[in-house]
Each structure stands twice: as C-alpha cells, then as structure tokens.
Design a protein around this nucleic acid. Sequence first.
DNA 1: AATGAATGAGTATTCATTCAT
DNA 2: CATGAATGAATACTCATTCAT
Lengths: 219, 219, 219, 219
Amino acid sequence: MAKKKPASPRKMPEQDRSRATVDVIVDAAARILVKDGYDAFTTNRVAEKAGVSIGSLYQYFPNKDALLSELMRRHTTDLEKGIEAMVARAADAPLAEVIRAAVEHNVQSHLIDPALHRVLSEEVPRLGKLDWQAAFAERMTHRVRAAFEARRSEIVVPDLDLAVYIVTRTVETVIHNAVTQRSHDLKSGALAEEVTRMIVSFLTGKPLAAKRSVRAAAE
Amino acid sequence: MAKKKPASPRKMPEQDRSRATVDVIVDAAARILVKDGYDAFTTNRVAEKAGVSIGSLYQYFPNKDALLSELMRRHTTDLEKGIEAMVARAADAPLAEVIRAAVEHNVQSHLIDPALHRVLSEEVPRLGKLDWQAAFAERMTHRVRAAFEARRSEIVVPDLDLAVYIVTRTVETVIHNAVTQRSHDLKSGALAEEVTRMIVSFLTGKPLAAKRSVRAAAE
Amino acid sequence: MAKKKPASPRKMPEQDRSRATVDVIVDAAARILVKDGYDAFTTNRVAEKAGVSIGSLYQYFPNKDALLSELMRRHTTDLEKGIEAMVARAADAPLAEVIRAAVEHNVQSHLIDPALHRVLSEEVPRLGKLDWQAAFAERMTHRVRAAFEARRSEIVVPDLDLAVYIVTRTVETVIHNAVTQRSHDLKSGALAEEVTRMIVSFLTGKPLAAKRSVRAAAE
Amino acid sequence: MAKKKPASPRKMPEQDRSRATVDVIVDAAARILVKDGYDAFTTNRVAEKAGVSIGSLYQYFPNKDALLSELMRRHTTDLEKGIEAMVARAADAPLAEVIRAAVEHNVQSHLIDPALHRVLSEEVPRLGKLDWQAAFAERMTHRVRAAFEARRSEIVVPDLDLAVYIVTRTVETVIHNAVTQRSHDLKSGALAEEVTRMIVSFLTGKPLAAKRSVRAAAE
DNA sequence: AATGAATGAGTATTCATTCAT
DNA sequence: CATGAATGAATACTCATTCAT
C-alpha cells in the first residue's frame, strides 16, 4: 500500500539543453493526457511523442510518477500565478470583497487549461489526489485561514478551522465541476456571484445583497 | 475515449450456491479495494481472496468492470436506503427543515462504509466517475429539484438549476471529504449544522439563526 | 505432439432419448461451426445452443474432439451415400464413363452441405486433416484402385498407385475448392466436364472428345 | 468472421542487434511449428525458445499473427525464388515445355522446407489460408494466365479461366500432398512426369508421348 | 549524455473438463 | 441420467524500467 518511489526531478537541469528536454517531455505528457487520457499515458509513448528516447526521459525523471508530479507542479504553479498579487491587493478590503476576489480568481484559474485540469483531477489515480491536490489545498488553506483570522470579528462561525474547510472545499469543487458541467455559468459570472453570496452569508450570518440577479434588478 | 464493454452480471444466479459465490466475490472485491487500493484490485487477486477460482469470477462477471459496477451498485443502494422515507417525511416541512434533513441523511450515508466510499470515489478511474457517480448524482439532482420547485417562493436564487447544482455539489463534496479529513466534525454534527446554515441562507437570502453554536449560546 | 484422447462416442445410445440428445448436440455443433466458425465452437456454447447442460454433452462425448469426430463421421456418411450404388451401376462400364460418373458423384457430394464442408476442411485444425480426411480418402482410394485394376489394360500410366493418388487428389481438391471459388462452374457441369476429360486422357493417353465445349460445337 | 488485426512488423529494426533478434524469433517460431505443431506455437514459448524475453517479441511483432505472417512471407519468398528466371527462360518455349518447367519448379519449391510448408498449409488456421496462400496463389494464377494467353491457340479448353483454375489447383495440391504421402515419386521425378503429361494433354487435347515410362520403353 | 534494445512480472480473460447435487 | 457451478492451467499482450553501447 505504501508508495514506492519519491517523486521529484532527478536533477536540476543546469544547462539549457537539459531544460529544453525536460520541457519537451512535460509538454508531450500534457498533450497525451489531454488528448488521449490517462490510459494512453505511458512513459514510452511520452518519450516518443516528445521526440526523445525513453532513456532520456528516465535521465530526468526517475519514474513515471515523478513526471506526473512535475506536470502537476507546473499546472498548479500556473493556477496560483497572480494569487499573491490578489491577496496583497485585498489586504485591507472587507470580507465580502476578499471572498468575491478569491472566488473570481479561482474561476479564472480553472479557465487556464480546463482539459488538463480535468484529466489531472479525475483520471489520474491516487498520486494526484494525495500529493498534488493535498499540497495545493494546504497552501490555499493557509492563505484563507490567515485572511479569516484577520477578520475574525466579522465571522459568526464558531469553529474557524471548520469554516475554512467548508469554504475551501466548496469553492474548489463547485467551480472545478462547473468547468465541465456548468461552463456557461462559469463564464457568465453567475456561478461566481452565487457562490460568493453563499460563502459571505455563511461566514457573516448576514445576507449579501444580490447583485446581478434578476430579482435584485426588479426591485 | 469511450469505453467498450457493457458491464452487468453475466447470468442470474439460479441456485443458492451461485448467489453465495457472487456475494463472496463482491465482498472480497470490497475488502481488497478498501485494504489495498485499486492497484491491488486484480481479478485474480479478488478470486483468490474470495476463495473461488478465477473461472467462477468470470462465470458471474463478464469482465473486471462488471464486478466493479456491481460493487458500486450495492454501495449506492445502501446509500440511498432510507432516503425515500426521509423525503416522504419532509414532504410538507419548511425549506430549512428539509435541507437539514437532507444534509443529515447525507452525513449518515457517508458513515456507512466510509473507506469503501473513499476508494470508489477517489481511486477508481473513469468508469466510477462516469457511470456510477453520474447516475447517483442524477437521481439526487432530480429529487432536490423537485423539493426546490415545491418551495420556489422561498428561494431567492434566480436560476433554480444553478441553485440545485451548487447545493448538491456542495453538500456531496464537503461531506464526502469530511469523512477522511473532518471525521470528528462529521460525527459531532457540527459540520451538518454549518453546512445546513450555509445552504439555507444561500437559498432563502435570510440567515438561519445559529443553533448549537457557542457564540449563539453566549449571546 | 501426440494426440491425447481417443475420440468416439462414449456409449451406444440405446434409448431414443439418448439418441435424440446426441442428435440435438451434433446439430447444434454443426450450426455453430457453419454460422460462427471454429473459434466459436466451444463445448459450453454447443451445449447451450443445443439446449442441454454441459454435463449432458460430456455424457455422450468424452471430449471435444469426439464431438467433432462424430460430426465429421456423419458428414462423410452423407457424402458417401449413394456411392455404392454408383459403383455397382458402373461395374461394367468403360473407363471414361466410370470416371465421369465418379466425378459427377463427387460434385454432387460437395453440394450437400458446402458450408459445413468448408469449415470442416479449412478451419478445423489437425484432427480433421488427419483422422477424418485420411479415413475418407483411404476408402476412396481403395475403391478407385479396384476400379482401375479392373481396367488395367486401358490405362497407360505405369505406376497404378501413383495414378490413383494423382486422380483422387486432383478430383477431390479441384472440386472441393471449386465449391467456394468456382461454384458456377461446379453447378453448370463445366468443371465436371473438364476434369473428367483431364483424368480420362491422363489415364488412357487418348484425348476424350470434347463434349459440350463451344470449340467442339463450332467444328 | 473477418479478422481485426493488421499484421506487419511493428518497427523496422535499425540496429544489427535488432535484426538479429527478429531473425532469432522467426527461426524459433519456425522450429516450434515444425517440431511441435501449431498448438505449441504460443508467443511465450516462441520467445523462450528464441532466448529472448516476451517483451522483445512484442517489440517487433504487434501480435501473434504478425509473427506468423512474417514467417509465411519469408517462406513464400523462398518458394518464389528463381521463378522469375524460370519464367524468362521459358518465354518462347512450346506449351508442353513450359508446363514441364513449371511443374518441376513447383516440385523443387516443395522440397525447400517441406515440414514447415506442411504445418503452414495444414495446421495454421484462417489467417494462413486466407492471407498467405491466397496472395501466393494469386501471383501464381496471374503468371499462369499470362503464359496460357500467349499460347491460346494451342489450348482446347474453351474457358481459359477455368483451365487456369484447374491447372493451378491440381499442380499445387497434388505436389503439396505428395511431400508427405509420395515423397519417393516426388524426388524420382515420376510424379512431375505424370502430372505434366496430364496437364498438357488436358490443355492441348493431344496426348503427350510418354517419356520415361516403362511401358513406353517397352514399345 | 543519449539511445533504444531488452526485460519480465504482471493482467485480464478463455474454455475444456470435472463432479457434487 | 441430468444439471450447472466450479475449476485452473494456459494465453496473448502491456508497460515501467534497466543498461550496454
């Protein structure tokens, strides 16, 4: 049951050629995953598609999982890109605004490479769930917790950890699934709007005035 | 990307002996999945663990997926057990109460065989995601939609479909993940409480008076 | 390399019910072979198609080869039906006429159940070639040899055994293959005509006047 | 009933080592077929006998049939070796001589690797019959037809296609079977002699003077 | 470093045959 | 006699990984 191999790039590519090779391999891996699914994701196939020998692949990745890990690392790096800026910007904003910004940022993230995101989240077995999503989630959790603590007085939920857990889970999954099942609402902003409302009223105990909703417009 | 095989029991067991064999196989399958994960879930291993020959396994299940399907079918049947009664009972109850009942029922469901539930949801590839969860989710969606429509006037969310989507996703995932990550809050009822609050205030636009929370008690 | 099992019906069916069961099994076997080919010819499938249990099949046939053998025996019996009469009738006829009669009889035989004949000859492995065709061929060879010996003086081929061999091989294969590849010529009689001519002139050293040929008609 | 798999070598061996491996595999395949028959012809057994891993076998042959195909291709290539020269040499010769040359060439072909030839023709199912023999036969048919057309005036058979069919079938099968059943006559030339006589008199309608026969010598 | 030939344990699945009921 | 549940050796084929060149 225990996992066998660690999983990190075997060596820091020090030369440009090495870096180029690594890139070419990771790109091929992503292309195969997106185009043909996890079943077609074999090391030999990746090497072939990348135009390098299987030996070269193993020069840079000690095993299959390491390659997958690197691919995930890059993807999450993309996802998190801009989040620091967002956090900084919202430093002193009221809770509702922070939540809105966070939700919208999350939505943006999910529009980066939805196909890859889907495969990584749904088709790739165990490793994905455990190592990748866990690490990503952890970082998110920390940030969200800090933000909540800074606004503790506005929050009615007694157990802050629980609040953080519920909010992060909710935002992540609702948006994630919406990529494939509610892409229209995702793009229109309707989903972000409602989710934000839900989170804010959950945290503050006060309803957030509906913003773009038909009902609101009618009043 | 489409799968080829159908996946239903090969033959209806006609004798008691057959039925017992089928059970013993499905049980072994569940045990292996829970104990050793999907990677260890091989037909030969299942047969061995079940104490039957590999031939017997294939007598009743035309292929591996069929066995997995049956396992899932049994599990979801367990999950849905009692839901009809719950629905009937809550027929005329106010929205908040219906939500609370539904959430609590969902929590109960996830306490039935959490380990199996986790493997089935997270480790099992494709088939699981698509066929099983989809069908289960669909049934849930229908029920929830009906309940919402019956109380349309209380609900402030303009797009009812979107509301259904958000609510079902949220309840399902938050609780599902809590099984492994927040089992204490799941058992104590704290999670159900907060999630219910969140859903209700989201739907009605009015905060639900906090019930068992420390803060509420203090006021 | 050696063959494992003998292959003959396990017991003489003494009761009508037994005979009926045997028939039903053999028929199912033939149907499967013709319809789905040798690959689909499995004992379980035969039993199922025959509407009897696999156990019953093994009651009457000790193994798969025995069933195949019986099927072949019946088929060759059909093939040879009428040959005795033909031989008797041609007892005192001149060589050319005997040949013609034999060829035409062979053609008739091959029109009895051509599909079954084809599968039996082409798809069924080893056993068929060795046991069945060998025995059939042997009986044929004997008859033909007797006929040739009775007309030794008309035959110019020095080695009578060789002549018998060539003639039987030729007639059998040319006609057999014609079933699938020259069915028109087989039915029209053109093939029989030419083959007869070929054999007769080979044996007697004298050309047989062409009979129905266009060329002959034109002269 | 149609077969699914294509069947050609998976990759062109680029290094000498590869070529050697392919050869060693094909040789082992031939040896097993000849020595133990088609039933013993399993991919694992071939790999073992060849002294390579099963993986190596599949590196060069995508499936079992591909290996069989390559084996057949090599065998027929051997069979056809020298036929072009023969054809060229006999370009302007009289019909009788062409036939004699062709028959004798066919005899020679069948003495190349008779045991392999027998297994390939008789034991190997479907694929063998259809793909291999068919292609071989087709090439033969074309050549024979061309030769006949060039000498149309000498031939009395009205339907040339039928003549070609009868002649090719006869020569092929009579000789083929003689490998195992009449090897003496095959080597002595007696069979070739008689078959030639038969064909020539069939085509021309005139008896060919017996050549080496005892009877002829006595007159 | 790069190559790609080689490896072989492991996987799903089939099917002739047995035997308890 | 009949049933059909049970058997398990055997088979084709995959793919992550190694290592000689």
